[in-house]
Design a protein around this nucleic acid. Structure first.
Lengths: 147, 147
DNA sequence: CTCCTCTTTTATAATAATTATCAACCGATA
DNA sequence: TATCGGTTGATAATTATTATAAAAGAGGAG
């Protein structure tokens, strides 16, 4: 997706960001990617238009976009591996900020409403669901990003 | 949680693994941790009983446990950052194997049944849910771990 | 337009998490 | 006991990401 410089400046300024060329190209690449892509993918795509751009610039801008709310992060868990010894079917309640995980044993998925939206061939035989929100500590604290 | 050597050998052999001492201690540490802990945490805990154990051994065994189904991974997304330009409320359908993410716009959460299980203070005002399963490609392929 | 100030970009170094390597070791079996 | 294949431990390598600092660019005042 391409934007005019004017359009992008509007978006950027609304979020308190200067409208640089690199920033616009990174933003367009993320939007055009239909989300769910990694910084490396974005980098590859942006390089087609700005061959000498630095990977750090892509990271910086993605980070800024997320912080300012232009984008949402799709990596809800802690960056490091977490492992679960509970093999009984259960779901997880995850704090979007501090990434703490709690088990939820309730059965709260309405499959009648979900099923029509599952693409053909996608196997949901034992679905595991993660519900995100803010835990009490994180909701009350203003703290930015507790480890 | 502690197991007798006999108990652990039973578990390990059922999954085609030799029942070594290190392996048992790592396994016990993971189970005792009530899941959701990182390899570093497990490492710290295991070192109390085997001070000279190598971090690689902890990683190796956790990996083995996950591969053989003794444990489940709680880091369902790709290890790297993913970003979403779609800010409209929506949920995600994630392939547990290849980590591909698709949007789902359906409203399939039964809050009546979920609510009683949400701990006090947890903020669900704008819940985001991720539903896991196997996409068509991964279901048909036997391939182990497509990047 | 020009200068000034503040932000951004770039290149690169640093860090963190994880995986790979490989020699030494252990335990089950012959 | 000798053998063999899987396991361990020390360490190097890899991957993803962040920090740093100098050079370049953006936006506003004159």
């Amino acid at each position: 997706m391409r934007l005019t410089h004017k359009q992008f400046r509007e978006i950027a300024w609304n979020h308190g960001l200067a409208a640089t060329h690199q920033r616009q190209v990174v933003y367009e690449a993320v939007i055009a990617s239909h989300g769910h892509r990694s910084p490396e993918d974005i980098y590859a795509s942006v390089r087609k238009r700005i061959p000498h751009i630095s990977l750090a610039t892509v990271y910086n801008n993605i980070r800024l976009f997320v912080d300012r709310g232009l984008l949402r992060e799709v990596t809800p868990h802690a960056a490091t591996l977490r492992v679960d010894g509970n093999l009984k079917p259960h779901h997880h309640l995850v704090c979007s900020r501090c990434k703490a995980v709690q088990d939820v044993e309730a059965d709260f998925i309405d499959f009648k409403r979900l099923a029509p939206h599952i693409p053909d061939g996608f196997d949901l035989t034992r679905p595991v669901v993660e519900v995100f929100g803010l835990c009490r500590q994180c909701r009350t604290k203003t703290a930015r990003k507790p480890k």
